[in-house]
Simulated scan of single mutants.
Amino acid sequence: MARLSSNASGNAGEAAFNAFFLRAGLKVAKPYWTEDMNDLLVLYDNGTRLIAIPIQVKSVQKKKDDEEKIQRLWKRYLEKTKYLCLAIYCPDLDKLWFIPKADNIVKAYKEWASKPAKTKPRKKYDEIDSDKGEVPLRVNVTQNGDEEFDKKWLLNTDDVYGIVQQINILANEIQQDKDYSHSVGFSYIGQGSSSISRAQSTECTIERFDDDDEDIGLNLEDE
């Protein structure tokens, strides 16, 4: 397979997860272009409100090593938003990995960093700069993969129940977490009302929208 450019690889990752989330019956939104931390939002409808689950999408391609580094996974994002999820796509293998919540991403890195390195020692998480540091998590991009990592985080794309279950758990946690607040603007990708192009979320939830409602409590903008 020809190597994709960085932008094309990133776009392929977002497209792959868009398709998978939508196939699972989930609502998906794209944050404003000024939003750097979140690449996608999964909007969970609890009947009265939409709960926004932030997703950062990363794409890894095989170069010369069995493991490839995830680029621009900033530590400050993991420390800022505890419900941030990491979605990883490998176009070479057409594989999807999903790590829910920042603490699980940190655990995945610590497990990787604790393994013996072929060359220089792997940096401990606490040694990474909290403001400007990247978390250099690497993913095995061989056909056989990493058995331990894949068992925990590799998605079975033939069975959408697993991701739906994970999103349900995350949404329930966010809904019950009174101390959590995260705001982000977005544009709808799928399963939204065609008459609504943009909305602003507050405290990670927005009022459920309805075409027949005149006042739905959202700041709407026309394209």
Rank of each mutant, 00 (worst) to 15 (best):
V57Q: 02
Q191A: 13
K64S: 15
R122A: 01
E79S: 08
Q176Y: 06
M37C: 10
L40D: 12
Q143E: 14
A113F: 03
C204N: 14
E173R: 05
S183L: 06
H182S: 09
I105D: 12
N168F: 01
E127R: 08
Y188E: 12
D158H: 15
K63H: 15
I189V: 13
K124P: 11
R198P: 08
N156M: 03
Y161C: 08
D212K: 09
L93A: 03
V184N: 11
R76P: 09
L170V: 00
I88C: 07
Q175A: 15
L4G: 02
E79A: 10
R49F: 07
W33A: 15
L137G: 04
K75C: 01
D212R: 09
D45M: 03
R208E: 12
R122D: 05
S183F: 06
I189P: 12
V139M: 02
K62Q: 13
G145V: 00
A87R: 10
D213L: 15
D126M: 05
A113L: 02
E221W: 10
V139W: 03
P116W: 03
D150A: 03
D215W: 12
S5A: 06
E79M: 05
L78R: 04
I53R: 10
K178E: 11
Q166G: 06
K101W: 07
G190S: 01
G47A: 02
A102H: 06
T142I: 04
V106Q: 14
D45N: 04
L50P: 09
T34K: 14
K132H: 07
P31N: 05
D158T: 10
E79W: 04
G190L: 07
D94V: 09
F98M: 10
A24F: 00
D212F: 08
E203G: 09
Y180L: 00
N46I: 03
D131V: 14
G217L: 08
V28M: 02
S193I: 13
R122C: 00
R49I: 02
T81N: 15
W97N: 09
N46S: 05
A16F: 01
I163L: 04
E111N: 09
K152N: 04
I128N: 07
G47R: 03
A15V: 13
D213G: 10
A2L: 14
N172A: 10
L170W: 00
I163W: 05
Y83R: 07
L78K: 00
I167L: 03
A113N: 07
D177R: 04
N18E: 14
Y83H: 10
L43I: 08
V42K: 00
F21V: 03
P31V: 02
K82M: 09
V184M: 12
I55T: 04
G217T: 14
G47I: 01
L218M: 04
K27E: 15
A113S: 15
G13W: 06
D177E: 05
Y83I: 01
K82Q: 10
K75M: 12
T81V: 12
G185L: 00
R49G: 01
Q191R: 10
V139P: 12
I196M: 00
A117C: 11
G25F: 03
E35M: 00
N156F: 07
L73V: 06
V28I: 07
L220Q: 06
L43Y: 11
N140P: 04
D94N: 11
R23D: 12
A19D: 14
D222S: 14
Q165M: 09
S181T: 13
N140D: 13
D92C: 07
D92Y: 06
N18W: 07
D39F: 07
I174Y: 01
A29R: 11
E111C: 11
